[in-house]
């Protein structure tokens, strides 16, 4: 019996966020294996820079600058003027380029193919990695028990 294949739907924020935080080698391996690689023109070639990460005093109060993190970004356009933006953590220019191409293709008729070939596997891998850490953390949770004192027994 075959299940009808369900497709996870991603909005633009979700797919860009997923690609940005995924390991560069995972994104590139899936991107290379994905069929459509249309031509494109650069709007902004990949460049690596920093963004200032902010925190809040006491976790919830006024913002302060914590320190920077590396980010690589680029923008490109494919046929019909569809524009793709790539913003990714770290310094990998191929990662940013793949992110921008995926962003562009997700706005075209290729969206379903890209979702199945790239986004779903990345989402699954991210969830698995998070679940595994959470499971290991859960195993270190202290289960207190109280010793009953003699006179109260």
């Amino acid at each position: 019996m075959t299940q009808p294949s369900s497709i996870t739907t991603f909005d633009r924020k979700a797919w860009m966020s997923l690609i940005a935080g995924a390991p560069a080698q995972d994104v590139l391996a899936l991107w290379d294996a994905c069929a459509p690689h249309p031509g494109f023109d650069w709007l902004r070639r990949p460049e690596t820079g920093a963004v200032m990460v902010r925190g809040r005093m006491g976790g919830t109060g006024a913002p302060f600058n914590l320190g920077e993190m590396t980010v690589t970004r680029c923008s490109l356009t494919i046929a019909d003027g569809v524009v793709g933006h790539g913003y990714v953590q770290g310094r990998s220019k191929p990662h940013a380029e793949a992110a921008a191409m995926i962003d562009a293709l997700m706005q075209t008729g290729e969206a379903e193919t890209v979702t199945k070939a790239i986004l779903e596997p990345l989402q699954k891998a991210r969830q698995a990695s998070r679940d595994q850490r959470a499971a290991k953390a859960a195993a270190t949770k202290v289960e207190f028990f109280t010793l009953v004192r003699g006179e109260d027994a």
Binding site: E47, T48, G49, A50, V51, M52, V53, R54, G55, R56, G59, T60, P63, N65, L66, E68, T70, V71, R73, R130, R133, A134
Partner: peptide, 16 residues
């Protein structure tokens, strides 16, 4: 490194 901007303050309450 060129500075691309600043992030929204991180939400440590949502920390894994």
């Amino acid at each position: 490194l060129p500075r691309f901007g600043a992030t929204d303050p991180v939400d440590t309450g949502a920390m894994a």
